[in-house]
Design a binder for these strands. Sequence first.
DNA 1: CGCGACTTTGAAGTAAATCAATGGGCGTGG
DNA 2: CCACGCCCATTGATTTACTTCAAAGTCGCG
Lengths: 240, 240
Amino acid sequence: MKRLPISASRIQETIRRLAYFQAWPDDVLDSLAGGAKLLTLSKNSWLAHKGETLDRLYVVISGQLRIYLPLPNDMERVVTLVGPGDSLGEACLVLNEACPYHVVASKDSHLLAIDGMVYRQELSRHPTLTSQTLELVSRRLIGALRDVEICAQPSSVQRVAGFLMLHQPTTDTPTFKFLLPARKQDIAAKLGLTQETFSRVLGFLVKQGLIQMQGGKISVEDGQKLSQITSMRETQEPCR
Amino acid sequence: MKRLPISASRIQETIRRLAYFQAWPDDVLDSLAGGAKLLTLSKNSWLAHKGETLDRLYVVISGQLRIYLPLPNDMERVVTLVGPGDSLGEACLVLNEACPYHVVASKDSHLLAIDGMVYRQELSRHPTLTSQTLELVSRRLIGALRDVEICAQPSSVQRVAGFLMLHQPTTDTPTFKFLLPARKQDIAAKLGLTQETFSRVLGFLVKQGLIQMQGGKISVEDGQKLSQITSMRETQEPCR
DNA sequence: CGCGACTTTGAAGTAAATCAATGGGCGTGG
DNA sequence: CCACGCCCATTGATTTACTTCAAAGTCGCG
């Protein structure tokens, strides 16, 4: 992880380009730019460890971060995959609490790091920002709940089906394509499965004709049936 | 569920007594009392269904609510148990989104129901409330993460140990007692276990001398060892 | 073309779910 | 005050879906 020696104007420019800051007033952006840094993280390098105090708000410009919880058996439970335009750390900064998860770059990444003190100060100064942040955190809370719901599915097929259906653009679109947002390994870890099980389930769904797959490209052929799986009592066909 | 025919003054009085509203200005409380109702829910009656729009903020006065996600196999994944002084619905109201979970009374309960419109209006009028709510939702988000962490533990013994250790009053208190906050059934569902497994694991821990148990009263005898279990690779003793 | 990272496939073991039945508390009513 | 009935917890026996361990296969990239 190294700090890019970039001019302040470059930072301001970057900030203004990010959707995250779209609705924020100019003077706030100027303040934020003051304590901001541009970071470059190479794949697999750490951004934060669980238990550390987080003193920055991070916004991903390019690349991808993996937020996860470490498990006893050398496994990980992926909480979120943070992509371009996404941010991380609001809740911790607001509460001034220790970081509850690990964060590492899952790809070479560029990010904006905004000083926590400045961030909190601006937050307290501008009610609009506070309510926007409230909305953001609320969205994240509800999102977390959706993830819990998927991971709580009793069978692996149901979890994967639930995951796939998250990507349908509009409800009642029976067929659609998308690219897996990360390595299958990481997605499996987000679903609470091993990569092996995830692979097998995808293979099973292909065999059933419910999806097609080539590399990371998924084509859902029958979203209808896939949704039903989620609420079915028996999922695993006799396997032959 | 029936509406108590209670005077407005009684409602204001109740509101003022709740810790939830401690720091809120008087005029806000008056407004909130305007659209508020006192509800009585008898055990097992519904407060909200998943998918419905939630148009009230609820604060529990007495009793207990169970927030949960329905699972295909007629099981539930308990998200939270909401007790006296706790509230529910902030995130939904802020985003004006459908309720993502079911809510039922797990005991006979009394609650305060505050009109959503009024709540949002007051929120937008008073930046202080907004930041307090931001803190509340942030806390809830981080709490949700802790729950995910426990449920992600690979073995049942580790999940239960993690749950038990949540109740230690201060870190480095090796021994402590507490009362289970709900039926074992519901706690099991919160840990992603069946009641049978939960029962067996508790029995196992008793046999190991790590805890004592009589009914809902738990006495943790060796928090040290219990914490270690959480990060151990092998958990289940050979059983004989 | 060959190497490393990631994924897929196979075979075996195991922990937890499931099914089924018993046991204990507690409130209600006789 | 005891007896019944209900709800919840416990215990046992069985099944199986997932993990685990191991190895081969694929892909992209220098």
